[in-house]
Amino acid sequence: MRGRIKSFILSVAMTGLAGVVGLFSGAALADNARDWQNLPKDINLAFGYYDTMNVDAPGVNVDADVFLFRYARSFDIDGRISAVQIIQPYTRLSASLEDLPHLGNFENESLGDTQIIFAHGLLGNPALSVSEFQRWKPEPFLTAAMWLTVPDGQYDKHQALNSGANRWAFKPELASGYPVGPVWLELNSWVSFYTDNDEYLGDNTLSQRPQYAAEGHISYTLSPAAWFSLDGTWSGGGETKVNGDLEDNEQNNVIVGTTLGFQLTPQFGGLIAWSDTVQHNPDSPDVDGWTFRLQYVW
């Protein structure tokens, strides 16, 4: 009986996290600086991420460890670089009720929702071989991408804390960049659309309005093997409804951060990034955390 009472209280508190229900499955994965810059055609890239974050929403606090595997393959379409990517998250979550700490923590550890991404260069970003790319001078670019989130992660409608979101998500994105000597100026924008979750905290229906965002990066090349960036993201919209009733949790969030990227060899590198929410509506979550990434190219 005590377990059922704890689960019910958590389910009530978790309505404060409804607007970021896909956060832990990778659906809110932000771009890092220099993510969309040109690369040679016909290469493979493998990424391993470890994100550690804290999400503070009204009545509930969640600590999350998110492990992501990301694979990308580049190719040529009509002389422009294109790529297909797959992202698979695995999450470890721990939630506590701020007003009832004596109830202890609620935990979940499982696979999140898979993401599939198609990207294509619209301007700049010519499709070059490895040898051609080594002689190429970077230029301004505009890239389009479409993200599809598949609801294949762990989800239990009787459980308040899940790694999967039990809904589809679609995110068209435009990414742009402009080089100025050792500096890159980048601006990305996107809109996320969501289908309904008809098994939200039982047999309730969770709906969410489109969420839109703009993200900027100013990065500086420290050496051929290292760069540093200042990052900022604004997100809005995304208000949720449960059984048709608005939750009054529309986002108006500003997140700032910084990133250090490095190359240990021509094929092997990584980055370390920190981010923190500096502005948010009272009923939307406050998120902060670190990202550690390693990547290998072949």
Score class of each variant (00 low, 15 high):
160 A>T: 01
154 Q>L: 00
236 G>A: 06
58 P>C: 01
119 A>W: 04
248 D>P: 12
271 L>P: 06
286 D>V: 05
192 S>C: 05
204 N>G: 06
48 G>F: 05
173 E>I: 13
229 S>C: 08
72 A>N: 08
155 Y>L: 12
133 F>Y: 07
129 S>Q: 07
167 R>M: 05
78 D>H: 13
157 K>T: 14
134 Q>F: 03
190 W>M: 09
84 V>R: 09
53 M>W: 03
118 F>S: 06
246 L>N: 13
202 G>M: 03
293 R>G: 02
37 Q>W: 02
59 G>E: 08
9 I>R: 15
120 H>P: 08
93 L>H: 06
286 D>E: 09
70 R>S: 02
181 G>A: 01
47 F>H: 04
220 Y>C: 04
116 I>F: 05
269 G>R: 10
74 S>N: 14
14 M>I: 09
187 L>C: 07
156 D>R: 10
156 D>N: 14
186 E>S: 05
84 V>T: 11
101 P>N: 10
224 P>C: 04
121 G>S: 08
2 R>T: 13
74 S>P: 12
99 D>M: 13
142 L>N: 02
81 I>Q: 11
292 F>T: 03
109 E>S: 11
51 D>F: 14
208 Q>P: 05
128 L>T: 02
84 V>S: 03
125 N>S: 12
283 D>K: 15
72 A>T: 09
117 I>V: 12
216 G>V: 06
159 Q>H: 14
153 G>L: 06
230 L>S: 11
149 T>S: 14
97 L>P: 06
199 E>Y: 03
184 W>N: 06
185 L>F: 06
118 F>Y: 11
